[in-house]
Design a protein around this nucleic acid. Structure first.
Lengths: 255, 255
DNA sequence: AAGTGGTCTAGACCACGAT
DNA sequence: TCGTGGTCTAGACCACTTC
């Protein structure tokens, strides 16, 4: 229970490893407090900075989180939103409320979308490419933040060609029953196909703030293209809290 | 170009934000060195620890990496492996070499798999559930590490029911042309469907070592079930370097 | 040999939470 | 009021790279 100077691992690493072992073995359970910094300084006989660094390693792994004035706690597993292909089914759309909303409410959690921006912006390069327009050409964007319970879950941007959303509720605060896809279909764009692309990375400080991310939590960037028979009708990008989503895709063996 | 004590941001945060701005604006390009710590101490008039902490923030974001004895450098964008559903196509399998290998070599990079373990192990709970056997029942596992160029890319485990792989090359170091799926089909298990599940999180220290991950790089955990008509014939789990993969799925609009 | 980042010491002060 | 983590100071030593 003390630092071994012959160990090739640094002191802070030895302390971090010992604490991690306490956590993964279940001796300190999620929600429980770690020994206080001063306690750990006594235990290991190092400077307080060394203990702080050890705890910093565990924070960066997403294992613990500090609450100032209170202590360092083992993080609880968050509620996970399971995302799969069925969320776009026409039948769910017909049922009115958005699939994600129904899912959250079934789990006893509230669900809401907060509209952050609504209007025309210059098309980013990747959006322009998909719509075969020039970068900077005007596109209509719906930018919103989704909440599940009292936590922001994702920052989502939907881009449309202006002529496609002209006169539809997609330009309004509320898109109405069935959401934007229902409105697109009403406007004659029969939805036939989706393409989703996923990446992960650490968040920017701005994203940390906006999604209230704990330290050591990555984000997923999802980009989606929604195709009607005529071509892409919706281009979507979302930054999602990496610890609150799981993605499932199922497909037949291709020839 | 100095610390503003009236700014609500901490000193280290102000320094980190200033350096990040230099990076995202392109004034310091990928591969280039940040000003040295002592230089930054002069510039900002803080203690060296404060500069170290600022740089620590940028490391945790995956923006920069330290090379000891040399400096702190802006990270280069790594080579990205694009993973999509076509990698399982029967025609590619028939062509012999694994799809990922062909892709890497087309990009001028070597590709190899290093077999880490081969043999029976007690089934983890999630594997047992998929195979409808008891946790701890024996399953045959192929554990390997995949390299693209000189970098390890993923740690992959494939689990099989022992009677399925009995007498096949799946039990050997080399599974032969077309890989394990080709062998399963030869053994009469016609592959009909796949289900993939993705999550992201920060890596354990063990994973950092094994995948040679830089600080601030998350991992993706992919789980896959491969179905024959009779049911699951391969259960797969991979820990993938989050900065070296992009996942694409395409599917028809479900009813 | 000089410069670099990585780690550590031994303190200090502050804002905040719990009591 | 006291304990807590978060931030900072002003150094030190080491391993390593570069020259």
């Amino acid at each position: 229970m003390s630092i071994d100077p012959t160990d090739p691992r640094s002191s802070s690493r030895q302390i971090a490893d010992a604490l991690r072992e306490e956590i993964v073995s279940g001796r300190i359970v999620p929600g429980e407090r770690l020994p206080s910094e001063s306690r750990l300084v006594e235990t290991y006989g190092t400077a307080s900075q060394t203990v702080k660094q050890a705890i910093g390693l565990l924070k960066a792994e997403g294992l613990v989180e500090g609450r100032k004035g209170s202590g360092v706690y083992v993080r609880q597993a968050p509620v996970i939103t399971r995302v799969d292909m069925s969320r776009f089914s026409r039948s769910k759309r017909a049922a009115g409320r958005a699939a994600q909303q129904a899912e959250a409410e079934a789990a006893g959690l509230s669900w809401k979308q907060e509209v952050l921006h609504l209007g025309e912006v210059p098309a980013p390069a990747w959006v322009a490419e998909l719509y075969a327009i020039a970068e900077g050409d005007p596109v209509f964007v719906r930018r919103r933040r989704e909440w599940v319970g009292d936590q922001p879950n994702q920052l989502a941007d939907s881009y449309y060609r202006p002529e496609v959303v002209e006169g539809t509720a997609i330009q309004e605060l509320k898109t109405g029953p069935g959401g934007s896809l229902a409105r697109l279909e009403e406007a004659g764009h029969r939805i036939v196909r989706f393409r989703e692309q996923l990446r992960t990375r650490m968040p920017s400080p701005e994203e940390v703030r906006s999604l209230r991310l704990a330290e050591g939590v990555p984000v997923v960037r999802m980009r989606r293209v929604t195709f009607a028979e005529s071509g892409p009708v919706e281009v979507f990008e979302s930054i999602m809290a990496g610890d609150r989503f799981e993605f499932t895709y199922e497909f037949d063996a291709p020839e």
